[in-house]
Design a protein around this nucleic acid. Structure first.
Length: 750
DNA sequence: AGCACGCCGACT
DNA sequence: GTCGGCGTGCTC
């Protein structure tokens, strides 16, 4: 990790903070202090503000400053500013009573801004996204018993005093309720000075974790890995790749490193993809540490969010479990970062500031001198290559818990075992389902396609229903009676007649979706309990969670699900997993399609067989010879990764993609994609082609490992060309890259 | 990012 | 004749 550039020294040296500069006034020279303040807007440098007489600020102090017509929160920074006319200078409005952002947090903001070519103000904005947290939480007024005693001790008063004598914090209302007296009794005793008001410190948003609450029982292998991870705590920056199949105890193992970091007095951040941040994870944490971690994700109530932010800044919150944005919390003493499910594409943010949270977590660890643990059953190519190259230490958890065994995986060659006409499940899989259900066990059919059918056409005239806004087909959702575009969200009612030729009742669905698969199962196994799990079912996330629990409790025989079944849910009775269309993800033109498909199928088949029952995974494919299918059948990621990546790297080839197209002309991503489709048609068939929007293009150029075809046209041509010239000029500047550049997507090989 | 200013199409 | 579209520019 020596590749992370040191912060450029000149950036700190040439602007002394609280710089004193003489200003000429009518009355002579007046000394005034001017400081750089990073404001939440896309300016390349901090703005300068005057510091009012008597105000103390230092780098990291959070302040309120006037900005045009409004007041905004900014951070006092330590970077040079552009010269500004003295008459434009305005004073800082106030400083918030809030711990200053730590040096590590500030260096992290600078680094991310520099790396992602984002204005530092916008990165700082991600840190400051808890507006009401900069002022201290309003202290609650509590009451405390004094030495004084009432002049006339009535029974109500005596009871009140007895109650108040109990240890603990009492509020006015709470005390009255607990003593069974009215508020006027409390007020009376306050007037007599028997009770006095005290300021209660605000309550911790979560109880402190207890590292000794419940030691996990680890087998020798897990114990050894846990110890190796724990030994890294306090030893400075390192990255450990913790790899193990579903059920191998990764979480329990890294919890031991978390415990060690907490014992050493540090803060811990556990990053999870938003979808994996479930109650079940929180429960597991609670079981180990006797308290919940603070949570940070989009569903956390604003009020709680602010308290978490504040208490992280104060160092009172010790552990945060959060989605990628938790990386920008104002930790002051971060001593361990865990990135669970590190391969998950949800870590990549693709709007505003583009960043990959896994990579930025590594950078944050480097800046703060803290160890980083990346955990996954199916590590990303980047992480595997980094491990191969010795930058990351690899820890392998080979076995599963107890007697649970991995499912036996078989490929079903759909050319040799075709389903019946208009059906999608091969007789081989049908037989397996029948046997499974007969034994009272559960079968899972995985198909990553929502709705009933991905394409509808008219049997009479051949009309195909396409999206009016983009170029994809409309997906029929029979349960809702709609045709929907999964690309742009366009939806319309399913018509009775063909809009082209007017014929009624001759519209035919083509291809399978989960709804259609459910229909097929109900017909084939009318006595079995079939359940459909899809993110678009009515009832929303809560209903879905209930359904998942019901499945785990055995209240279904056949489960049909989209990719949501691959994420973090354990079904103890599941002994058969069928991937209905394993080839599906391979054909979509995504250069990471093979990797994603491998990961998805691996995770789905890993759902089965936690109880020690014999379990099977059947993978329906038309291409059993494809390396992804071979690797899945072997049940060993190695086969796939070596073929797909490492060999390629050894051969001296760019890992993926010989040609990347950059569309710099477009104003919107959609427009860029349209240009991209044209370009893809025109490209030689053996070129791997990546289409990048305008926001990504300069970055890709800067990182430049690929040949680029530039298409520069349209209304913003001139500024973009200038920008690109500037970027190209910057590109040769020797700067290391933290990660092996495996992904042609510039954001992922940061 | 917001927000204001500024120049061209369909209407209370 | 105005209301309103978003293109352009500015914020210490």
């Amino acid at each position: 990790m020596r590749d992370i550039p040191e912060p450029e020294p000149d950036r700190r040296d040439d602007t002394a903070l609280n710089e004193t500069r003489p200003t000429d006034t009518l009355f002579g020279t007046l000394e005034e202090r001017v400081v750089p303040v990073l404001v939440p807007l896309p300016a390349e440098r901090p703005y300068s503000y005057r510091v009012p007489e008597g105000m103390q600020v230092e780098p990291g102090t959070i302040v309120q400053v006037p900005l045009g017509p409004r007041q905004v929160a900014g951070v006092v920074w330590d970077a040079p500013t552009d010269p500004v006319e003295p008459r434009k200078l305005r004073p800082i409005t106030r400083r918030f009573d809030c711990p200053p952002l730590s040096t590590e947090t500030r260096r992290f903001v600078d680094w991310v801004a520099d790396y992602t070519l984002s204005p530092p103000g916008l990165v700082a904005r991600m840190v400051l996204r808890a507006p009401a947290a900069f002022d201290p939480e309003p202290a609650a007024e509590g009451l405390r018993l004094t030495q004084a005693r009432p002049d006339r001790p009535t029974s109500a008063r005596t009871r009140l005093i007895e109650t108040a004598a109990h240890p603990g914090e009492w509020t006015r209302g709470g005390l009255a309720r607990a003593a069974g007296v009215s508020l006027s009794v409390v007020d009376g005793l306050m007037r007599q000075g028997v009770l006095e008001p005290v300021w209660l410190p605000s309550h911790p948003v979560v109880a402190p974790p207890d590292t000794g609450a419940a030691r996990a029982t680890l087998n020798p292998e897990q114990g050894a890995v846990a110890e190796q991870l724990a030994e890294r705590i306090g030893q400075g920056f390192s990255v450990s790749l913790l790899e193990g199949v579903t059920g191998s105890g990764k979480t329990e193992v890294y919890f031991e490193a978390v415990a060690r970091a907490l014992d050493a007095g540090g803060q811990v951040l556990i990053l999870l993809p938003e979808i994996a941040l479930t109650q079940s994870f929180i429960d597991r944490f609670h079981a180990r540490f006797g308290a919940e971690p603070a949570q940070w994700h989009s569903d956390v109530a604003p009020r709680t969010r602010e308290r978490v932010w504040r208490q992280v800044a104060e160092g009172r919150v010790r552990v945060v479990a959060g989605a990628r944005s938790a990386l920008f919390l104002p930790f002051s003493n971060l001593s361990l970062i865990v990135v669970d499910e590190e391969h998950d594409p949800a870590y990549k943010q693709e709007d505003r500031t583009f960043y990959h949270a896994r990579d930025m977590a590594v950078v944050r660890g480097q800046i703060g001198g803290a160890p980083v643990v990346l955990a996954s059953a199916t590590p990303s190519l980047e992480s595997r290559v980094n491990a191969e190259a010795g930058r990351y230490t690899r820890h392998l958890l080979a076995s599963r818990f107890a007697d649970a065994v991995l499912p036996r995986l078989e490929l079903v060659d759909m050319r040799r075992h075709p389903p019946a006409r208009g059906r999608f499940v091969s007789p081989v899989l049908l037989t397996a389902i029948e046997e499974t259900v007969a034994r009272g066990e559960q079968a899972l059919l995985f198909l990553n396609r929502r709705g009933y059918a991905p394409l509808t056409l008219c049997r009479v005239c051949g009309h195909r229903f396409g999206c009016p806004q983009c170029s994809s087909w409309l997906v029929e959702h029979r349960l809702r009676g709609t045709l929907q575009c999964h690309h742009c969200g366009h939806a319309e009612r399913r018509p009775e007649a063909c809009p082209h030729c007017g014929t009624f009742d001759h519209l035919v669905p083509c291809g399978p979706g989960v709804e259609r698969l459910a229909e097929e199962m109900v017909e084939a196994f009318p006595d079995a309990r079939t359940i459909l799990l899809s993110s678009d079912l009515p009832g929303g996330a809560r209903r879905l969670r209930q359904e998942l629990d019901a499945v785990a409790d055995g209240e279904a025989d056949i489960v049909i699900g989209t990719q949501l079944v691959a994420k973090g849910h354990h079904f103890p009775l599941m002994t058969l997993v069928g991937a209905v269309d394993a080839d599906l993800g391979l054909a979509n033109g995504d250069p990471r399609a093979a990797e994603r498909t491998f990961q998805l199928l691996h995770q789905v088949t890993g759902r089965a067989g936690r109880t020690g029952l014999k379990s099977r995974g059947l993978i329906q494919t038309f291409a059993p010879e494809h390396p992804v299918m071979q690797a899945i059948a072997a049940g060993e990621p190695e086969a796939f990764y070596q073929r797909e990546t490492i060999e390629r790297e050894r051969a001296g080839l760019p890992p993926f993609g010989r040609l990347a197209a950059i569309i710099v002309s477009a104003d919107t991503r959609r427009e860029a994609e349209e240009h991209g489709r044209e370009l893809r048609r025109a490209a030689p068939p053996d070129d791997d082609l990546e289409v990048l929007g305008p926001a990504e293009a300069p970055l890709a150029l800067l990182r430049g490992r690929h040949r680029f075809r530039l298409l520069v046209q349209g209304p913003r041509r001139a500024p973009l060309q200038a920008y690109l010239r500037e970027m190209t000029a910057r590109a040769p500047r020797p700067r290391g890259s933290v990660h092996v550049q495996i992904d042609i997507d510039p954001q992922s090989f940061l």
